[in-house]
Amino acid sequence: MKLIVLLIIAVILYFIARSYKTEKFANIKLDIKEKFEGDLMQHEAGLLVALMAKVAKADGEVCELEAQLLKHTLNDISRHFENQDEIREKLKDIYKKEKESFNNTLEICQNLYKLTKNNYQKRVKIMEYLLNLAFIDKDFSNTEFMITEDIAKALQIKTEDFQKLVNAFETFYKKQKEAEGISLEKAYEVLEARKDDDSNIIKKKYRTLVKKHHPDIIAGQGASQNIIDEATNKLQEINEAYEIIKKSRGE
């Protein structure tokens, strides 16, 4: 039952960092380790991984961010056990098996509910962790909403509490997207370009600005050290802007 400690720590790390970088879930240490040799599908650890498999595969594929989070989670959960190598392999097997079908999702939820029946807040934290996984690729699809909603109902989580969690994640990613949008807008401004310019025009403007602000060229013109330093900073800004624009265009 100590698995909830892992979940709580992970969620706390999220709120502290306000970011879903997978490394935030790594290196969680517990002083007391459990020895378990039974069926992990009767243990919170196995049931959690099974539900993670359902959520990760809900939209048809497991993205790289989801895969990384799953990898770190399996590592951190297995370190909770004395026989961690054995447990990790069993959890991997559970994940591989459970991502292939959604038919037993309700049964898994019912088993998890039995283990957490007297701890509502624990189930809310589990739900928060599953939503973290669903949102990590920044695209909370209708399918992901439906399966997480079904899980929440089966775990007897109040509708208002589930919606509150969803709203919190949506607000976070909306703000993050807005911040990225401002950054992209600034990048076009730095390159003296427009969003509807094609890639060749962007590249041409980038090269023109590099030649104009390259510190070696400025130095060769006999400029003072202060001007050279300003050119160095400007060139860095130009390079960063160009990388942001290329990334936004998938180049």
Rank of each mutant, 00 (worst) to 15 (best):
S224Q: 13
K205T: 01
E185D: 15
A56R: 01
Q163W: 09
A134M: 04
E82H: 05
N239Y: 10
G60N: 10
H214T: 09
G181M: 07
K125L: 12
F162C: 06
V190E: 01
K71I: 00
I244K: 12
I94R: 00
D216Q: 11
L74A: 04
V5W: 00
S141G: 11
E180C: 07
E189V: 06
I16F: 04
E107S: 06
M52I: 04
E180V: 10
E64M: 04
T73A: 06
D197W: 09
Y113W: 14
L191A: 04
Q84H: 15
K247N: 09
T73V: 07
I9Y: 04
A134S: 12
Q110E: 15
I9Q: 11
K212H: 09
K177A: 15
I147S: 03
S101D: 15
Q84F: 13
N27T: 08
T143P: 00
L184Y: 00
S78N: 09
D197M: 10
K177S: 13
E61K: 13
G181P: 01
G222I: 10
L165K: 09
T159D: 14
D139L: 10
M146L: 10
N119P: 07
I4M: 05
K186A: 03
A26V: 05
I151F: 04
Y173R: 08
Y242G: 05
E243S: 08
I28E: 02
I12V: 13
Q221E: 15
N226D: 15
I147T: 09
I244E: 08
D196A: 05
I108Y: 06
E192F: 08
N142L: 14
K97Y: 02
E89K: 13
T105F: 06
S101L: 03
R207A: 10
A53N: 07
E23I: 12
N104P: 01
S224L: 11
L191R: 02
D93H: 04
I244V: 14
A67V: 02
A193N: 02
V190T: 09
K174L: 12
L30S: 05
A134W: 08
T159V: 12
T143Y: 12
K164V: 01
E251N: 12
N132G: 13
E144Q: 15
T22Q: 07
F15D: 14
K246Q: 07
V5G: 08
Y129C: 03
S19N: 15
R88P: 01
V55H: 05
E128N: 05
E44Q: 13
R194I: 09
K117V: 08
Q110T: 14
H213E: 12
L184S: 08
G250C: 11
E44T: 03
A45M: 00
A134F: 02
K186R: 15
I77G: 02
I9R: 00
E243A: 14
N75R: 12
D39Q: 03
K114L: 12
Y95F: 15
N226S: 15
